[in-house]
């Protein structure tokens, strides 16, 4: 006797992710951006240290941050994948076919979230580790430091270093949580272009708005912006006015969950 359960619906959503080209391409873009930007920025450090006129401050060399910089670019690919995985159902009208097969809409929302979390989560973590190893491997080993006025060895990060493993894992987690946020946003907005615009706005525009606020508000808002939470999550030493990695990840997780929950409530209420 067949039954529709979370397991069967999740299996179906996995199959749907694998069999549509757009999501697979999105996933490839995510991994390439993550690793590619890590390698590019790490490699460019060699140019920086060899430019003696520019002046190089060794204490500002953040090996982990350079190697993982790709997370910032990968989050957009993640957001698009998450959004598209939902909005394409509305755009093509396939949402009716899907919800006629799975009328319990909570199952539909949870299954979408599980599939995206697992697939993007694994891809992002793999990309984070590859990016970290490749990036650190090609970073310059020494440089002329303008502060001490001599050639110094640069601190290349290794996984055993304080907070480094956490930073690598957190960079993958950040991209995954932003992808989930994209799923929630997609459920709320239902239109692809609108969803992606709002997503990009959250990352790029809200920080700009924050600049126009009084200093007190600005500090409060900056602390909780998704992009700054991301910086907190992968920082080895916490910058001023920011959460430490754990609470930052929890808060970002709460955002993603909040969007998903609102998405579920609306999906459950609306006619399709």
């Amino acid at each position: 006797m067949s039954r529709t359960t979370l397991a069967t619906v999740t299996r179906a959503e996995f199959a749907k992710f694998r069999t549509a080209r757009s999501y697979v391409i999105g996933l490839i873009v995510l991994v390439v951006l993550f690793i590619g930007m890590g390698i590019l920025i790490s490699g460019l450090q060699n140019v920086r240290v060899s430019d003696h006129h520019g002046g190089f401050t060794a204490s500002e060399f953040d090996s982990t941050a350079f190697a993982l910089i790709g997370y910032f670019f990968a989050q957009f690919a993640g957001g698009v994948i998450g959004a598209l995985f939902v909005t394409s159902e509305f755009a093509t009208g396939s949402i009716r076919t899907t919800l006629a097969a799975v009328p319990r809409r909570g199952l539909f929302v949870i299954a979408k979230a599980i599939v995206v979390t697992v697939i993007v989560g694994i891809a992002s973590e793999i990309a984070a580790f590859v990016s970290f190893f490749a990036g650190t491997a090609i970073q310059p080993r020494s440089a002329f430091d303008v502060v001490s006025n001599k050639v110094v060895d640069l601190p290349i990060a290794s996984l055993s270093g304080q907070g480094v493993l956490r930073a690598v894992l957190m960079s993958g987690l950040y991209v995954t949580l932003l992808t989930l946020l994209g799923v929630g946003l997609g459920l709320i907005v239902r239109h692809t272009a609108g969803t992606i615009s709002i997503f990009v706005g959250l990352i790029f525009i809200v920080p700009l708005i924050s600049l126009a606020l009084p200093t007190g508000w600005q500090q409060g808002l900056d602390k909780i912006l998704p992009s700054n939470l991301g910086q907190s999550m992968i920082a080895i030493s916490q910058p001023a006015n920011s959460f430490s990695a754990g609470p930052a990840a929890l808060l970002l997780g709460a955002y993603a969950l909040g969007f998903l929950l609102l998405g579920y409530v609306l999906t459950n209420r609306r006619d399709v």
């Binding site: 069967t8 619906v9 179906a12 899907t98 097969a101 799975v102």
Partner: peptide, 15 residues
């Protein structure tokens, strides 16, 4: 999605 994959996903969703 191909016709086969479309139907396959539907079949999977209902066991």
């Amino acid at each position: 999605r191909t016709a086969r994959h479309h139907l396959r996903a539907l079949a999977l969703s209902n066991g």
